[in-house]
């Protein structure tokens, strides 16, 4: 078991329990935010695990999740617009900043270990998609709520 696998395990072990706790309690907006954070955490863990297993094709999992995770959150935000009108979670900005920082750090670490060329470009693309998807979904969670509230009142 190498250092990448240790990092991936630590990432999963430290990142997902707060997500499960956040999705299990509190107001609905915090639960959606926790679900969005969970997809980011698992996508980054997939990047680390792919490096740990020395299987570059495992990064496809991360690529798929970076596209599907925000879609799932946006679906929730769209269908739960009525229930989310109470306002966005106050942790939204801090959690999003933490997710973006984590994806930058993980992408930099994985790119430093990858060979220059197409694999590195793919890793950079995946890292950018993960960070961007998290920001877009969190923004839709807070801004979409405001638009919905303005539209109904």
């Amino acid at each position: 078991m190498n250092a990448w696998l240790w990092c991936g395990t630590t990432f999963l072990g430290l990142g997902l329990p707060p997500v499960i706790w956040g999705v299990a309690s509190g107001p609905l907006s915090r639960r959606v935010l926790a679900q969005n954070t969970g997809s980011t955490v698992v996508a980054l863990a997939f990047l680390l695990l792919a490096q740990g297993y020395a299987r570059p094709s495992y990064t496809d999992l991360s690529l798929v999740l970076s596209l599907l995770g925000p879609v799932g959150t946006l679906v929730c935000v769209r269908l739960l617009a009525d229930d989310l009108s109470a306002g966005a979670s106050r942790w939204s900005t801090a959690v999003t900043a933490l997710c973006v920082a984590a994806s930058l750090a993980v992408t930099a670490a994985v790119c430093a270990a990858a060979a220059p060329g197409r694999p590195m470009v793919k890793l950079l693309l995946i890292g950018a998609l993960v960070a961007l998807g998290n920001v877009i979904a969190a923004r839709a969670l807070s801004v979409g709520v405001l638009e919905e509230a303005d539209g109904t009142r």
Binding site: I20, R31, V42
Partner: peptide, 13 residues
């Protein structure tokens, strides 16, 4: 439904 989404992520991992 939200908890099930997180469960799906854990299962994928």
């Amino acid at each position: 439904a939200l908890v099930l989404a997180v469960l799906g992520l854990a299962l994928a991992a």
